[in-house]
């Protein structure tokens, strides 16, 4: 076989290898995305076969739609509760666990357990724990003179409760990411810091740990933000957006419009906004990851 034919054979093989994947990407990503764009300019609804082109009407409707504003506000409130706490708590847990070599693996397992569990099922457990009358949490809170709280039934509390459950389910995940980042910091840097006189925990943290964790922190922040915007399971199981739409978050609204009210056109427009937000996060990450500290 000559070199040329060998090369051609290799190219043919390459095309054969990527063919199934390429077709599926076309069918599952490219075509649907284009279709979503298309649908978002129509008043398409699954219940009637008749639909027409409405231009930017769906997007205009969004601006006027109280439900949309409500969902955005709810999502932002939820995110502002969930993001800082999930970041800071997991970072401190990771640092504390990292320092305790002998307990590291058992603690890692215990904190990671909620990540593997089925959130839909665990949400039921949380609902029972948070029950306003007979729940264990209120019982304990009462023992120290607090509450009772109406965790899931009150408009002011429900997003806080959602954030709490999400926090529980995601802490282990972020913590493991931080642990990986911490392990990658060369120990000689801490030693150099000790020699330079930076042996106070505060100095160690701000002079070495925090700057060296930069890329990990960025990654955790971005994935957590996307997770926050994807809040769905607990809302669908526990509140269905209630009480009085106070837990109706963005993705849940999109789901309702599309698959409960069958307003496909509007839902498609909402999905694209959702995609835009995720793209934004990805962009932020891409921009910052390039500025990585490198040796």
């Amino acid at each position: 076989m000559s070199l040329g034919t060998k090369k051609r054979a290799q190219t043919r093989l390459a095309y054969m290898l990527v063919l199934p994947a390429t077709l599926l990407i076309l069918g599952i990503y490219i075509l649907p995305i284009l279709t979503v764009f298309g649908i978002s300019f129509t008043d398409y609804s699954l219940v009637s076969n008749y639909y027409e082109f409405v231009g930017l009407e769906n997007y205009r409707h969004m601006l006027a739609d109280e439900a949309f504003g409500n969902a955005i506000v709810n999502t932002l409130i939820y995110a502002s509760l969930f993001l800082p706490s999930s970041f800071i708590i997991s970072l401190f847990l990771a640092i504390a666990i990292q320092e305790r070599k002998q307990f590291r693996s058992i603690l890692e397992v215990l904190y990671f357990l909620p990540v593997t569990s089925t959130l839909a099922a665990m949400a039921l457990v949380w609902a029972a724990l948070m029950d306003s009358n007979q729940g264990v949490i209120n019982h304990w809170a009462g023992a120290v003179g607090l509450g009772p709280f109406n965790w899931l039934g009150s408009e002011t509390m429900v997003l806080f409760s959602m954030a709490l459950i999400s926090l529980w389910s995601v802490i282990g995940f972020n913590m493991v990411l931080f642990l990986a980042g911490l392990t990658a910091i060369p120990s000689s840097l801490y030693e150099a810091a000790a020699i330079d006189g930076a042996d106070h925990p505060v100095d160690r943290f701000f002079r070495v740990t925090w700057p060296m964790l930069g890329p990990t922190s960025m990654f955790v922040a971005v994935t957590s933000s996307i997770t926050a915007f994807k809040l769905f399971d607990t809302v669908a199981i526990l509140t269905q957006g209630g009480p009085n739409r106070s837990s109706e978050v963005f993705l849940y609204l999109t789901f309702l419009e599309g698959f409960e009210y069958f307003n496909m056109g509007y839902s498609a427009a909402l999905s694209l906004v959702f995609l835009g937000i995720i793209f934004l996060f990805a962009l932020v990450q891409a921009l910052f990851v390039d500025r990585n500290v490198q040796y």
Binding site: S188, L189, E191, A192, I195, G197, D199, P211, Y295
Partner: peptide
Amino acid sequence: QSPKQRNIAMVFQDYALYPHM
């Protein structure tokens, strides 16, 4: 005493420079 109190300086094999500074 801690390294800080001993007034010593040390050069490491991999230099251990702070990469972000």
